[in-house]
Design a protein around this nucleic acid. Sequence first.
DNA 1: ACCCGCCTCGGTCTGGAGAGTGAGAACCCC
DNA 2: GGGGTTCTCACTCTCCAGACCGAGGCGGGT
Lengths: 213, 213
Amino acid sequence: MIRVVVADDQTLVRSGFALILGAEPGIEVVAEAVDGAGALAAARHHLPDVVLMDIRMPGMDGIEATRHITSSPITAGVRVLVLTTFAADDYVVAALRAGASGFVLKDTEPADLVRAVEVVAAGEALLAPEVTRRMLDRFARAEKAVLTLPPLTQREHEVLVAVALGLSNLEIADRLVVSYSTVKTHVSHLLTKLEARDRAQLVMLAHRAGLGG
Amino acid sequence: MIRVVVADDQTLVRSGFALILGAEPGIEVVAEAVDGAGALAAARHHLPDVVLMDIRMPGMDGIEATRHITSSPITAGVRVLVLTTFAADDYVVAALRAGASGFVLKDTEPADLVRAVEVVAAGEALLAPEVTRRMLDRFARAEKAVLTLPPLTQREHEVLVAVALGLSNLEIADRLVVSYSTVKTHVSHLLTKLEARDRAQLVMLAHRAGLGG
DNA sequence: ACCCGCCTCGGTCTGGAGAGTGAGAACCCC
DNA sequence: GGGGTTCTCACTCTCCAGACCGAGGCGGGT
């Protein structure tokens, strides 16, 4: 039996979801909440499998409540399924950062809502297709932003990584088991190839290229 | 009518998927391919709505083929739904970077596979629950990884940002309209506070703290 | 009035960074 | 064998980075 808490400030919406879920044989709605604080309290008290959380609520909003639930050891294991009307980017990202396990739109078919609850209760995550598309776009854009480095030799690449870690030439020499002079040669080549002036710019470029975390 | 190309090197698997999809009223399998090159050729020739793409294939693999399909203007609009046995992180990330619109596991129920094809054909994106979970974890980890800096004064913060950009002390002095000596003082304080040895480490720490892009 | 933190500036001194040059060894390709 | 690239190492020289010192102005808090 999947135990669910439904949190939404709009009575009609909340009742509707509770009815839909309650009608399902394997699902039981153990509590309802009208704001974030209530949702948090219900989560702590009932320790449900899933909290169906609206984002826009008076007082503590759904994002904040989600953050508390997912970060508190007391409510560890309680999954949050976020509900919203629009798939606005800011909401999605904020909800994901807050630790939400799912993101579904309010115009979802009842059957899909039930399925989403079941999936999330099983420990999986699920996003509405529109939301997934937006996330993938973000992913793609984030990846395109990285700097592409000119072709570097194997050794130069290793030295660049070491430089990006903040190591001195002497430390790099020790790390790669070569002489101090050799390291300086490689660094000098890197400065030329990457059109950098000093190792500080080298560190910057390496990080922008995704080499240093 | 949704037109689909099925690409998989394993004959049984390929035929199975083609049968499942072909049996659906709204779906038509227009071509099959046994490797990445064949998938790419079929995509260019038939311009299907969806290419069902296996990752592991001889010669050009599914990732590479996906990259070609999504980046070529000829096959613009052709969606790629990636199929795999395991939700290995590297595969997922690589597929997403390559521009895949979906990611489903081979043990998916036939009905869910059909649904995935329909969703992807509609221009949306869809990920298998396990895959979504992994992506969310990545998201969460990427956010948690940022370094928290010790309290810095306003001026120190400005100098740190400038250092992170790769500027020299003289350039920073010009940028902030102060003397060279003043910049050195601030930098020296930064080195002490952040427990860094030189400005290279300062650049690294600044980037890890999310100050430099 | 006093203290304290921040910002400002100047001085000296040491060490490492980086430029520039030359050169030997290993490897691959034609 | 000759030409190319890469990796290796050494030497000189210049210059900035950074440590360390002191000091004045300015604002807030006791």
